[in-house]
Simulated assay, not measured.
Amino acid sequence: MATSMELRCWGGDWGLPSVHAESLVVLAYCKFSGANVTVSPIDWTWRTLTVTTPELVCGDSTVTEPADILNFLRKQRFNADYELTARQGADTMAYVALVEEKLRPALLHTFWVDAENYANLTRPWFASRSPFPLNFLVPSRHANNALCRILLSKVESPLYSITEVEGKLYSDAKECLNLLSHRLGGDHYFFGNSPSSLDAFVFGFMAPLHKAALPSCPLQSHLRQLANLTGFIDNILAVYFSGSQPGSPVPVQETVDANLQKLTQLVNKESNLIEKMDDNLRSSPQLKPRRPEPKPCLANEGSSTPA
């Protein structure tokens, strides 16, 4: 009997199943690979204050960090990269490293360090989902952790403050988005007709940036100028997170525009209904044969003519 798996992650908002980038990565990969997991949004209590999210619990095993969770799912035979070639596997690692190095720090700054975004969006969201006094502690703690992470990863001599690294931060992030847009091109996914772990990582990190109502974000404006990337996000949300058939991905036709996926599904249903009605009419006994042609009458007249 298969062991049940529970995924503990941040809750959703803004039209997303989770507002947390790393949680979105794992949620998307579970959908892509067909892994049946029970999603449990974490509650901000004293017990879960120091919890690492996302967190996958399977039997006696507890796995954290997206890369480790994806490797664990592959060992359980839930592998969205099964059909990738060696070259595509190498490209996956390279682009995931690019996202981690270039895009993640800018996202941390956008949501947790930018004063306007933090005061008007990030802090109120987390405060409203935390009991007193955690509604004061949780947001500030995450903001401090984000700032420390940015400074540790990005500060290089002669840059010593967050103000000095902001320009470099967003320049790298925009370059990363441009490279991803160029690699995706006009395709629905990065490798072929099926999504892989690279699609999960790119979706997870870009979806909050695309969907959040940020008061101040030049990086969001840049992303929305890259139509193929925003279409990529909207397509995955429509196909895998629409709620119509959870856990059962709907195949995407190459000729269908990603932004019209939902409408296309409705049209297909109507077309199938019309075809069934047409088949029923064709097989209906109400379709009587034609009247006999006059040829038999002429034959009878000829036979009655005197010799």
Rank of each mutant, 00 (worst) to 15 (best):
T163R: 14
A97R: 12
S130Y: 04
P66N: 02
L84E: 09
A143V: 03
A119G: 04
V113N: 06
E101P: 00
Y82R: 15
W112E: 11
R141S: 10
N193R: 14
L177S: 04
N144T: 13
H142A: 13
V99N: 03
R77Q: 15
R123E: 13
F132Q: 06
H188C: 10
D114T: 12
S140C: 02
Y189R: 04
L134R: 02
G185L: 09
S181C: 10
E83P: 00
F126A: 04
W125I: 05
P66R: 01
E164V: 00
L151C: 14
S140D: 14
G89I: 01
E83K: 13
L103D: 02
H182K: 15
F191N: 02
R129N: 02
V96R: 13
L198G: 04
T92Q: 13
Y82T: 11
A94Q: 14
V165T: 10
E164M: 08
L147T: 14
A67T: 11
Y160Q: 09
G192C: 09
R77F: 12
L198Q: 01
F126H: 06
G89H: 08
R77L: 08
T163K: 15
P124N: 00
R87P: 00
R129F: 01
I162D: 07
S140Q: 14
R104P: 04
S196K: 07
F191G: 04
P195A: 02
H142S: 08
V63E: 08
L180T: 00
L147M: 13
K154N: 02
G186R: 08
N135D: 09
S140M: 09
L137P: 01
F191D: 01
F111N: 07
D91H: 08
P139L: 09
P131G: 03
S157Q: 11
P139K: 01
F136V: 05
L179P: 00
D114P: 01
N120T: 10
E164K: 11
K174L: 09
E83G: 07
R129I: 06
N79P: 10
Y82M: 10
Y189W: 11
N135K: 10
R87H: 12
A115R: 14
L98W: 02
E100F: 04
S197C: 06
N79F: 06
V96D: 02
S140Y: 07
S161N: 13
E156D: 11
G89M: 07
N71Q: 15
R74T: 12
H188P: 05
G186W: 03
Q76P: 05
Y95Q: 08
A67C: 05
L159Q: 11
K168Q: 14
M93G: 02
P66Y: 03
S128V: 00
N71V: 10
T122H: 01
V63P: 02
P66W: 06
A115T: 12
T92C: 14
V99C: 15
L147D: 09
N79Y: 07
Y118C: 06
L169K: 01
L198M: 03
N144E: 15
H182F: 03
S161P: 00
P158F: 07
L121Q: 02
F136N: 04
A173P: 04
